[in-house]
Nucleic acid binder design. Structure first.
Lengths: 331, 331
DNA sequence: TACTCGAACTAGAGCGCGCTAGTAGAGCGC
DNA sequence: GCGCTCTACTAGCGCGCTCTAGTTCGAGTA
């Protein structure tokens, strides 16, 4: 910076003004400074800038590498953050990299806010985080939590899916749940309620699972094993999410069970891949773009106006009927 | 930091020593400092640290949100970077966020090295980048480039796939190429060479494509349209990568073309999802973990010893035969 | 002429840390 | 007693930037 200032024949302060696009420099000086900077390859150091300015204008995003729906969200967050003039810092959880570690990384880089995509932490953990910084949780419901929260109306989504299945004539509808995953508790509850509402209380069955393909595969194996032992297959399965649904379909296909002929499958998320599968997956669409917009909006509003109450946005999901659901065989 | 020092009754310098885990402080002082820090929620500011130290010990990684194979690589990079004591900064390309923009973000955060996963830039662009910083390109071949390079032996992988197909009796083997995507040129070349070697020069056909599901869908539609116009379908397709293969299979399934009965499909990457599809995808495995190890290793070696020649690692890929390939119908 | 005023620019402090050079004091041999 | 070394600690500069409080200067105004 000093070099640029010297070569352009101005003070460092003026170079700073030029690079921050602030008033206080004539157009010709601006041009000269920028040209000199370009010549010697100068670029402002964001660490020093951050340090001096006292704020980073950066939003930290915690996501999971293999969670395809997170990719959709991240894409939306980039766009929204840019719109609000914020930087985005990504930190991923992965095998061998815990959520806590990923969050630490974000905080040590002085993110002003942290957006958690489907966090795995407890409410207490999040509240602690919320004390330390501005935090927004996407998907994972945090009852009574202090932090902001964006989620889809899980109940509505599940209800639409269940109404669709029952409307097609299904009765033996099984739910693979998402364990401690975000939104799972609500979906589980909505599944039970819908079954009851349709007079199918006796058929309620929840198979424990999570949000990975593996859990779908396991559930599929379980169901096939039961069939081989003489029990009837369910006629429809509501999976924890799209990935789980994919795993399930793989397991079923391997055992020669046809979808949707013998078993209908419904996913959740409408992640980027779900409409690109060999067979279009019937699923509940969560609008990633809209969720990203709210998440970033919440974070920004908190940052500009410290004294806000916890905010919450509920996005209406929408059932997308594709090829993996249809009437049951028996009907 | 000053607070911690005051409360612990020591100087700021000592707090610094404790947090850097350097010799020069007694155990009891260490404990006291750490305890106080924990109480008031102090955590070193990585921006200030970076500024003072002059180096960030951070590796920048450029990836693409929806490229599933990148997720595998990122996972490996995190592990390797931690092993070498480096931080990882992620920057994604996405819709509305160009590669140049993503790289700028990394550089302005003063990454010491940049690891590009399947970069889209030209050799010249990369050389310019290589002048400014340490850069490693993964997958994308940079002939005559100054920057380090990790890729798999594309030729070997394609050859294995082609030998497998020809061995099963295929002759009409089409290749959907990856356009300007990383590795595509080599794969295309190897495909042509293999066809020639097997005396199938007359059957050579390359359909232009890229590394997305969409390109697979398009190619599938094209092939089906040709069939409807009376031309024979190819008996096997070598796709640009797994995502392209998935798109292709979707298009074929929609049109009632059975895989592998009518058409065998082979992908490339063995990305996380390829063995979790409803039908296991025959594909060429690239070992993401090993590639990550080399990429990080190269970057670190450059950083610790400035005067190295361009490095290159070639990883042997391996054909993984699953359910989408088999003998052609006519045989 | 004397003044006010705004645009264009500058000096210099300070952001939170790391690091070098230094000090204090304990332990040791002679 | 002295000098020596070793451990435990501190003072204070500087990293590259932003920002506040100026200064300078030419144009406009009474």
């Amino acid at each position: 910076m000093a070099d640029v200032a010297a070569r352009a024949g101005v003070s460092r302060a003026l170079v700073s003004i030029v690079f921050r696009n602030q008033p206080g420099a004539s157009q010709e000086t601006r041009d000269r400074v920028l040209q000199v900077a370009d010549e010697i390859g100068y670029r402002p150091d964001s660490a020093a800038r951050l340090l001096a300015r006292g704020r980073s204008r950066a939003l930290g995003v915690l996501f999971t590498v293999h969670q395809t729906f997170h990719a959709d969200l991240v894409e939306g967050i980039y766009a929204q953050a840019e719109h609000h003039g914020y930087d985005v810092l990504l930190s991923a959880t992965a095998q061998g990299r815990s959520e806590a570690k990923a969050v630490e990384a974000l905080l040590s880089h002085r993110c002003e806010a942290v957006i958690l995509l489907g966090a795995d932490a407890t409410t207490a953990d999040l509240d602690v985080l919320g004390q330390r910084t501005v935090a927004v949780s996407v998907s994972r419901r945090m009852p009574g939590s202090l932090i902001d929260f964006v989620h889809s109306a899980e109940g509505k989504g599940v209800r639409q899916a269940m109404d669709h299945l029952v409307g097609e004539g299904h009765r033996r509808i099984v739910h693979i749940d998402g364990g401690r995953g975000p939104g799972s508790a609500e979906r589980r509850r909505a599944y039970r309620a819908a079954m009851r509402r349709h007079g199918l209380e006796a058929e309620i069955r929840v198979i424990p699972g999570n949000h990975t393909e593996e859990s779908g595969i396991e559930a599929g194996r379980l169901l096939v094993a039961e069939r081989d032992a003489g029990e009837p297959l369910p006629t429809a399965v509501l999976a924890a999410n799209d990935r789980c649904a994919m795993g399930l379909m793989m397991a079923l296909a391997r055992s020669g069970v046809e979808v949707p002929k013998e078993v209908s499958v419904i996913g959740y998320d409408d992640s980027h891949l779900s409409h690109l599968m060999p067979v279009g997956l019937t699923t509940v669409r969560q609008d990633a773009g809209l969720m990203a917009e709210h998440a970033v909006g919440f974070a920004v509003r908190r940052l500009e106006n410290k004294t806000l109450e916890p905010q919450e946005a509920v996005i209406d999901p929408k059932l997308v009927i594709r090829d993996t659901s249809g009437p049951p065989r028996e009907v």
